[in-house]
Structures are given as structure tokens and as C-alpha cells.
Amino acid sequence: MPLTFTYTEGALPETAEKQIVAKLTESMLRWHGLASNTVMTPTVTAQVHVISKGRGFTGGQESSGAWVEWKTPSFAFATREIQIGHIKEATNIVHEASGGNLTKNQIWVNVVHAVDGAWGIGGIAMTNAELAEAISKG
């Protein structure tokens, strides 16, 4: 389940990146009841993108910010409780790591669901059912 974490240069201390990724990963797994799942945990990957000042926008105007985007199968983030809980927690993780440099209104979290059957793990294209079966064994 890839995480793309993007932020504007200077909005966060560079040393906070690893801590933020670790906490976001832990939060997502915990909210899904998969905190120690041996199949799921290694499939949570992350990329960090730092964009130059002047390259982030809000409402068409230059702005600093941070963006948390998950790409998951459609069965993830399926309940309102998980959506509300994780998004609130993810926002707080980034806000606290910024030392207050970013307001919560400058932090955006979203989830993109993949097409069923398009999960490539270890070179195998897995359907949602196949992925759920593998996760249930971990």
C-alpha cells in the first residue's frame, strides 16, 4: 500500500521525514487491525517528495503545505470510523512534526483506490480477494 508523502521545502525539518513515514505507516496499519501482520506490513511502502518553495498551491495561490496520499485496494479505508480516525491522526502527526509551522488547514490527506487485480506484489498481479486471503495468513 504505497504512501506518497509530499511537503513544501522548509515546512518540516528534514530530520522529521523518517519519523513521519514510520508514524503514518503505523497509524494506517493499526486503524485496519493489521499492526503486526507479516504479509501486510512489508507491502506498506513510502516515497517522500520535497517540493521547492513556490511549487505548492492552495486555491490557485502559492502556499506551503503537506500532502499524505495512500494508494490502497478498495477494501481499505472502507469504514467511516477508519477514515475519520486515520485522517485526524495523520494530520496531527504532520502538524506536530512541523513544530506548528504548518497549520492543520495546510495538511491534506487522501486515499486513492486501485483497480481490482492491479496489485503487483513480488511480480504477481493480485485481485482484492487474493490480497485479502494473503493478508489473512499473516
Rank of each mutant, 00 (worst) to 15 (best):
M1L: 09
P2I: 04
P2H: 06
T4A: 09
T4R: 13
T4F: 07
F5S: 01
F5Q: 00
T6V: 13
T6M: 09
T6R: 11
T8W: 01
E9G: 01
E9Y: 01
G10C: 08
G10R: 12
G10F: 04
A11W: 00
A11K: 03
L12A: 07
L12M: 08
P13C: 05
T15W: 05
A16P: 07
E17I: 07
E17R: 14
E17F: 02
E17M: 08
K18H: 10
Q19Y: 06
I20S: 05
I20F: 08
K23G: 09
K23W: 02
L24E: 08
L24G: 09
E26Y: 05
E26Q: 15
S27V: 02
S27Y: 00
S27L: 10
M28H: 14
L29D: 10
R30L: 07
W31N: 13
H32S: 01
G33E: 04
S36H: 13
S36P: 00
T38K: 14
V39H: 04
M40I: 03
P42G: 04
P42A: 03
P42Y: 01
T43A: 09
T43P: 03
V44T: 07
V44R: 11
T45N: 12
T45A: 12
A46F: 01
A46W: 02
A46L: 03
V48D: 00
H49D: 11
V50G: 05
V50W: 05
V50N: 03
V50P: 06
I51E: 13
I51Q: 12
S52F: 00
G56F: 11
T58L: 11
T58Q: 14
G59Q: 07
G59W: 05
G60H: 05
G60Y: 05
G60K: 06
Q61G: 00
Q61F: 11
E62T: 15
E62F: 01
G65E: 08
G65F: 04
A66H: 02
W67D: 05
V68R: 00
V68I: 15
E69R: 12
W70P: 01
W70I: 01
K71Q: 13
K71E: 09
T72S: 10
T72P: 03
T72V: 15
P73Q: 12
S74T: 12
F75C: 05
A76H: 11
R80L: 10
I84Q: 13
G85N: 09
H86W: 09
I87G: 10
K88W: 07
K88V: 13
E89G: 05
E89H: 11
T91G: 12
I93E: 02
E96D: 15
E96W: 06
A97F: 07
S98G: 03
G100I: 04
L102A: 06
T103P: 03
T103R: 10
N105A: 15
I107F: 02
W108Y: 15
V111Q: 02
V112T: 13
A114R: 10
A114E: 13
V115T: 15
V115R: 11
A118N: 14
A118L: 12
G120I: 11
I121T: 10
I124K: 15
T127L: 06
T127R: 09
T127V: 09
E130T: 04
L131M: 12
A132F: 00
A132W: 03
A134F: 12
A134P: 05
I135E: 06
S136N: 10
S136G: 08
K137A: 10
K137D: 02
G138Q: 08
